[in-house]
Design a protein around this nucleic acid. Sequence first.
DNA 1: TATTGTTATACTCTATAACTATA
DNA 2: TATAGTTATAGAGTATAACAATA
Lengths: 139, 139
Amino acid sequence: MGRLGEFIGFRLRRVQNLLSKDFASATRKYNLRSGLFSSLSLISSNPGISQNELSAAVGLDKSTFVQVIDELEKRGLAKREKSKTDRRRHALFVTDEGQIFLNELYEIMAKTESAALKQLSPSELSLLKALLDRMYEVL
Amino acid sequence: MGRLGEFIGFRLRRVQNLLSKDFASATRKYNLRSGLFSSLSLISSNPGISQNELSAAVGLDKSTFVQVIDELEKRGLAKREKSKTDRRRHALFVTDEGQIFLNELYEIMAKTESAALKQLSPSELSLLKALLDRMYEVL
DNA sequence: TATTGTTATACTCTATAACTATA
DNA sequence: TATAGTTATAGAGTATAACAATA
């Protein structure tokens, strides 16, 4: 790999690439549009979140989420509700069916990561998380 | 972040996202097409590599690299040479100018990572690399 | 027949700008 | 005026399929 292999970003990316490819192939049958999983998860963890807040959390433009949420609604996984206090906003909620589906995706994600995590002892894993968090906070 | 934050892939991605955004903004003036840096680096480390081998190493389709290498040639950073032994193949080489530019990109990458790496002691950094390599090898 | 590089093409992802309805 | 959501649109990035040259 040459000097590219000296960089920590290279190592991060190649592990993450494999994980995300594994997750993509494990969920291919669900035909998950980009951002659907993370949106569903964030709505679940933050009931009533607006589309604007969601886009800020994910770091993509708000226009990106219109189709994502259209699809979540069409699939019956989440729904928009007009805010009573500010009628411009849509409060977003995960449906019961959406929560079941989301739990299934969490399971698949956990299984995807399990092979990699088996290589690490519990203390190594918590150290890895701590190191990554320290790097994230300073960037 | 909810349960999404429990996954190691989430932590890997968010650190790597920040690193790659920082690198992108630090190199914006060079107008680097996707794959140009990694291709130039791999050609430099593997002189005479073919387009097919390059695409296999990066994990993208060979058709993707036609335009990347067109641009590397147009900028005078690398060149194609017809292989003597198999006239279908193009042996790829970095020019002197390309090597100078590549070294500059390595510098920028190192500077990009330095903020994050300052958070880690030398032994933590080498452990982090080892853990990531162990995860990569098993995936 | 199979492989290397090429072209044409289409699809996904994402951003920007302009619009609407509200505030 | 400003903000939330929407629409239209354009630009990247990538893959697939078909092709020419060569093996």
